Amino acid sequence: MITATTATRADPGRRGGRLGWAASHLAFILLGLAFVLVVLGLTLGLAYGATSGDAAERVPLVLGAALAQLPAVWTLAGLAIALFGLLPRLVPTA
């Protein structure tokens, strides 16, 4: 009996194989992380603006600071996906 692991297929019910599976997960990761940073920036900006009394100025400032972290977060996500593709046995260390 051949299992999905020994047949080198990520998901036996999905066409496209391992590359399509990884691409869909990478897209979800990149968009999801961007969404989380936007929500975080807006929430922290509103909280900071509420305490300082100047939300109109503080929200864009904090949102920009949160989104400035996006390239670093995407780089780490890309490295984790690359590690999965190149050395799948080392993925738990990522």
Rank of each mutant, 00 (worst) to 15 (best):
M1I: 08
M1G: 09
M1Y: 10
A4N: 14
A4Q: 14
T5P: 03
T6C: 00
A7I: 00
R9S: 10
A10R: 08
D11F: 07
P12Q: 06
P12C: 05
G13D: 15
R14C: 03
R14S: 09
R15G: 09
R15S: 12
R15E: 10
G16A: 03
G16H: 07
G17M: 13
L19R: 15
G20C: 07
W21M: 03
A22V: 10
A22C: 04
A23K: 07
A23D: 12
A23W: 13
H25R: 14
A27M: 08
A27G: 10
F28P: 04
F28Q: 06
L33G: 00
L33K: 10
L33W: 15
A34T: 09
F35A: 15
V36L: 15
V36E: 10
V36I: 14
L37F: 11
V38L: 14
L42S: 02
A47P: 01
Y48L: 14
A50D: 13
S52Q: 11
G53H: 02
D54G: 01
A55N: 04
R58L: 14
R58D: 05
R58A: 15
V59E: 02
P60G: 11
V62H: 00
V62E: 02
L63F: 10
L63G: 08
G64E: 08
A66L: 01
A66K: 04
L67T: 07
A68M: 02
P71R: 02
A72N: 00
V73H: 01
V73C: 08
W74M: 04
T75L: 11
L76S: 04
L76F: 05
A77Y: 03
A80Y: 08
A80N: 11
I81H: 02
A82T: 07
L83H: 01
F84L: 06
F84D: 14
F84A: 15
G85F: 03
L87N: 05
L87G: 00
L90R: 14
L90G: 03
L90Y: 04
V91R: 15
V91P: 00
T93K: 10
A94K: 01
